[in-house]
Every structure is written in structure tokens, then in C-alpha cells.
Design a protein around this nucleic acid. Sequence first.
DNA 1: TCGCCAGTTGTGAAATTTTTCAACTCTTGT
DNA 2: ACAAGAGTTGAAAAATTTCACAACTGGCGA
Lengths: 115, 115
Amino acid sequence: MARRVPLYQAKAEFFRMLGHPVRIRVLELLQDGPMPVRDLLAAIEVESSNLSQQLAVLRRSGIVTATRDGPTVVYALAGGDVAELMRAARRILTEMAAGQAGLLAELREAEASAS
Amino acid sequence: MARRVPLYQAKAEFFRMLGHPVRIRVLELLQDGPMPVRDLLAAIEVESSNLSQQLAVLRRSGIVTATRDGPTVVYALAGGDVAELMRAARRILTEMAAGQAGLLAELREAEASAS
DNA sequence: TCGCCAGTTGTGAAATTTTTCAACTCTTGT
DNA sequence: ACAAGAGTTGAAAAATTTCACAACTGGCGA
């Protein structure tokens, strides 16, 4: 039977699932509607197999679905609005950036290492 | 001047920062108002130094602030409305859990205490 | 000043995640 | 049936994160 996972842990896993640039971009692209892997690949610069790996993470978490249409695979958001989540995140992000030099420093630093 | 970090990367870092059970619990506790480390430690079962490390992650990201009051350190949400983000996450989580009976039950149960 | 209490920080090992490359599955056109 | 195109998967290396322990800082009362 299913083991009982504390809610705070489910939340943490959910956020961790979101915590990757490629996965974020996929989710944002899918907000405009379902999209074949080929188009995702064109929009996001990443190796095809790497994209597949990230798509697998999203699939496993259940936030997206994949359906095969002939030779191409089409991804779509599984359910509700990820959009609202993204908006909330952006609000907090801009708030933090506006109010605090700390984040700005952090962001600059992160940029330097990620080039 | 600093070149800007792509938004999707800032978002990914933000979500990654949220992706840890202890950090989630801290943020949820702080939604009821500022709280000294001592109380966080009492509420969350974790080694003191481990909690400190997670608090440091939150601090660095800028989502919480720490102020010293005599011998105790008090943490508070830096700004905004983390609550809304958590609500959005919970909505999606609930929706996704629709296919997984065990998790669904747990989410419904927790609904009452709104954590 | 000394000792203690509340937290934090450094360090290194353990665990997890990300990336890459090759091999593999499916489907379709010839 | 075969080859090619579209994606996925397995596996190992590389990078990151987490955790526990010890050492450390700052404030306060004796």
C-alpha cells in the first residue's frame, strides 16, 4: 500500500521538481498549449537526450502528460494552472529583487558562475 | 552593470530554494509571524546546526530576514505573500493527486489545518 | 573575567541530481 | 523488409546538495 508522505515533504518534492531551468521553460512553453518535443527542442537549447530526461522528470511527477501522435510525441500540462504558480513566484521574486540588495548580489553571482 | 539573469533561471533557483522539507516548514511557520530560532527548533525535528544551515539558505535567497534580539535570533518573512504561493502549489498538488488515492486523502485531511 | 546559552559556520563524507554518450524503441516511407 | 527520423532510456562521470560533528561567535549573568 501507499506509504504516507507528510504534506511538507510532498510540497518540497514538488518545488524541487520545478527547480531546474529547462523544466521551468518547458512548463512555461506548455502554458500556451500542447507542444511536440520537436518544438520544445527548438525553443530550448539543450541536447535532445537531456531534454528527454527533464521531460521524464516532469512526467513522473505527473505535472505533464505525453501522448504519441504518429512519430512525434506531444506534451501538455496535465491539469490546472501552473500559470498562477508562476505568477506568484514572479511576484515574490520581483518583490525580493526590488527591496533587497541581497538578491541582486545573489543573482549576479549566480550569473557569473553559469555564464 | 550586471547583465540580467534570465527569468526562467531566477525562477528555477527560487523553486530549488523551496525544495527542502525543513525550509518549507520554516516558511509555513513564519507565516503566522516572526519566530525565534528556538521555537522553530522545537517545532521542527532536526539538529540545531542543520536548521541553521537551512535558515542560511533562506536568508541568502532573501526570502526571510534574521534579527538579533539579545541572545536569541528572530526570523521573519522578508516580504511578500508566500502564502499565496503555497496555496497555488497545494492546488496543483491536489489536482495531480487525483489519480493517486493515498496522497489525495492526505491532502484533504490537511486541508483543515491549512498547512 | 569566566562560563554558559543561543546560534552559526567550517569541513568532509554521503546522498542526490545533472549531464553526456551510446544504445535502444517506435513509426513511417520506400 | 530496411532505413531513417523522433524520442527515450541506461549507465557512468561530474556537479551539487545535504548532513553530522566540532569549533566558533556574541551576549549576559555570576
